[in-house]
Design a protein around this nucleic acid. Structure first.
Lengths: 143, 143
DNA sequence: AAATTATTTGCAAGTAATTCGCATTTAGAT
DNA sequence: ATCTAAATGCGAATTACTTGCAAATAATTT
């Protein structure tokens, strides 16, 4: 398993020190199947971590594009590793359930949007999330 | 000008009382050319308003789908009227400038996504925002 | 392998965004 | 005009996140 080494070199390549906290945070995010909030990251760390450290780390990782910020409309930010296959999220507006979306029929949106823009010269990221009702909640609502 | 009446009936149709605050908030949002934060709404209200009332109103309006929450990654929520022509936003990661995007080449994403989903039975909204650098910031960065 | 130094961490305190509890007011039904 | 559930205003509370600073440490230099 090369994961530890990979994370170490990802950090070093971005000019960060490969500290235990950072490696642990990346490890936890790698394992997670869905975007994590700062609190979820802490809870998932076997030996815990200081809140401030986690926030600082997430900020740094985001600045270098190692992780992406995801908006699930939960009143706090979520993050996931940036090197995952491109995908988006389906979020249940009632229970918060998340499903990954891999095929949504869009292609080169960024190119098209940039071409049509008056004031922008570069698009670095885009976010596409869907909000709806999951089947389980829909069922509950019937009764 | 039928606006006042429209807002009144929009509220009543959702089961809300058409109070002066709510009408004022809807009026202000109607005038705004970009998504507004709670604070921006207050600042735009000629006779001000209580912070809690504005937050409560925004929450209610959002629950009924009268306004949409928009994530500009500014560390607080933004909202805009839901009955605008479908569009998305281009956000400058440096200065926060916002440009509306009307044509992005996507069609029936919701349908496609829903068809491919295991756990969801309904998509109510989706958010598509682009984050990049505006020309003016790009120019500044050169010097 | 020890010394050095710029980063990073942990803690506590601070700030920003949003929510809540409750007494008072008010929109709209009767 | 009266009544009542819903809405408001106020302050306090909570949540999410940030900051300052002294102590610790990763990685470089010797």
């Amino acid at each position: 398993m090369r994961k530890k080494e990979d994370h170490r070199s990802i950090l070093r390549k971005s000019g960060y020190k490969a500290t235990p906290s950072r490696l642990a945070i990346l490890g936890v995010m790698q394992k997670s199947k869905s975007p994590m909030s700062a609190q979820e990251v802490i809870d998932a760390l076997p030996r815990g971590a200081d809140l401030a450290t986690v926030y600082r780390t997430l900020k740094s990782l985001k600045e270098k594009g190692i992780i992406k910020q995801i908006d699930l409309r939960h009143n706090h930010a979520h993050y996931e590793l940036a090197n995952l296959a491109e995908h988006h999220h389906l979020v249940c507006m009632q229970c918060g359930k998340i499903e990954d979306v891999h095929h949504c029929g869009i292609e080169d949106v960024q190119g098209i949007v940039l071409k049509g823009s008056k004031h922008f010269s570069e698009i670095k990221q885009y976010a596409l999330e869907f909000y709806g009702i999951c089947k389980s909640c829909a069922r509950k609502n019937q009764s």
